[in-house]
Write a protein that binds this DNA or RNA. Sequence first.
DNA 1: TCGCTCGAAGTGGTCGGACCACCCGTCTGG
DNA 2: CCAGACGGGTGGTCCGACCACTTCGAGCGA
Lengths: 233, 233
Amino acid sequence: MDDAAPRKGTVTQRAVEEIKAMIAEGRLEPGQRLPTERDLAVQLGMSRSSTREAIRALTVMGVLDARHGSGIYVGTLEAGDLLESFGVVADLSRGPRLVELLQVRRILESAATALAAARITEEQLAAVEAHLAAMNATDDPEEVLAHDLAFHREIASAAGNATMAAILDGLSSRTFRARVRRGHQEPDAIARTRREHAAIHRALAARDPEAARAAAAAHVGGVEEWLRGRVGG
Amino acid sequence: MDDAAPRKGTVTQRAVEEIKAMIAEGRLEPGQRLPTERDLAVQLGMSRSSTREAIRALTVMGVLDARHGSGIYVGTLEAGDLLESFGVVADLSRGPRLVELLQVRRILESAATALAAARITEEQLAAVEAHLAAMNATDDPEEVLAHDLAFHREIASAAGNATMAAILDGLSSRTFRARVRRGHQEPDAIARTRREHAAIHRALAARDPEAARAAAAAHVGGVEEWLRGRVGG
DNA sequence: TCGCTCGAAGTGGTCGGACCACCCGTCTGG
DNA sequence: CCAGACGGGTGGTCCGACCACTTCGAGCGA
């Protein structure tokens, strides 16, 4: 008997677990192609509709990658893809939860920056410098924000932990930052950001982990405190 | 005109964004009921199937809560529900990525433990003690693990950041821990865990954040290092 | 009058089939 | 030999039907 126990709740849920199990057990390797929706439906003993919903759910989670006209493939299973839904949390969070998220980001960002200070290469440092300079060279809020994000992304990447970088990326998602920015875009805020970024960069260039940790914590903490005051923490 | 621009890629993806936007903009409050699938499909100008897939995707993410026979409701939007999919990442991660996840956990766990040391109440401390005692009282690996998890969960909760607690919960998900445990369940490992837990508890009882941070970091770091050696980091 | 039951309506869940849009290997015609 | 047309296979969408479950109120009985 190869048919699993059909006791689980909904049919779709069972399909999700089934496919997840296939991957977890190594029966499906990253990049490998799955059977077609139609075949998979037969294998799992359910209709194509239910199979599709399961696939869709896993696709949204970043586990699977469905390519129109080609087939369904197992995702890279890298942190970046899997943690994409992390950004959704940031998008949907409001009020106190936003402060909590920022606190998590402060903790991780400072740790990442400290790690980066200890192991950043010259090339990576140059990239950080480039974004710092680019951010100082423009006054277009859109562009400033873009280089702000890239600045932090580069540092997180230099920390050598792709998973952490992915989480930080989600926490700093576009919508999230844009929302915080709204009303916080006074000129002195930009100036302050530039000053703090410069401090972070100096600590990185000096390969000073503790200074880097402090600078990053102060940077994120500033926004955090401002936000805490706004939402009535 | 209230019909949005239909430029997005797949129809389902558009539906997901649409519903997410409704929630983000506050048009839908947590706990509120959505229109029926059939009505929603008409509103969005698409078939029920596509609407269903979008709902399914959001349900998996914890944003929506579909109750058979009753209706579709907006979830609590609390961190715990939204970050449930975080556990999937842990379940599906292997090799080096597992080490990275553990490093993230070490950072967050030590920060959370430090926070907890500063603000834990007597009741919470008593709960922590209870799990510590229970874990010392049994040799059943299953039960030991359960109290191990509860011990950390209680501490994370005492840190006062529900979002961080939810993330840590995902990082310590059952499957994850069980997998790490496999082959790591030598008797001295349990003894070591008990010793380290006791150290964490002492730091909490002493309200010493720095000692708590160090004890937690050492605790998670021990597993991390062991795992790093196993996967060839 | 109160309470309980039972059934109908409404909802999400599943199904099967049809057709469309797209990708890709192949085959044809130059 | 190569470029373009072609066809098969795939995921994407839609439809209509039916099933399973929840809910609530009408009707019954005490």
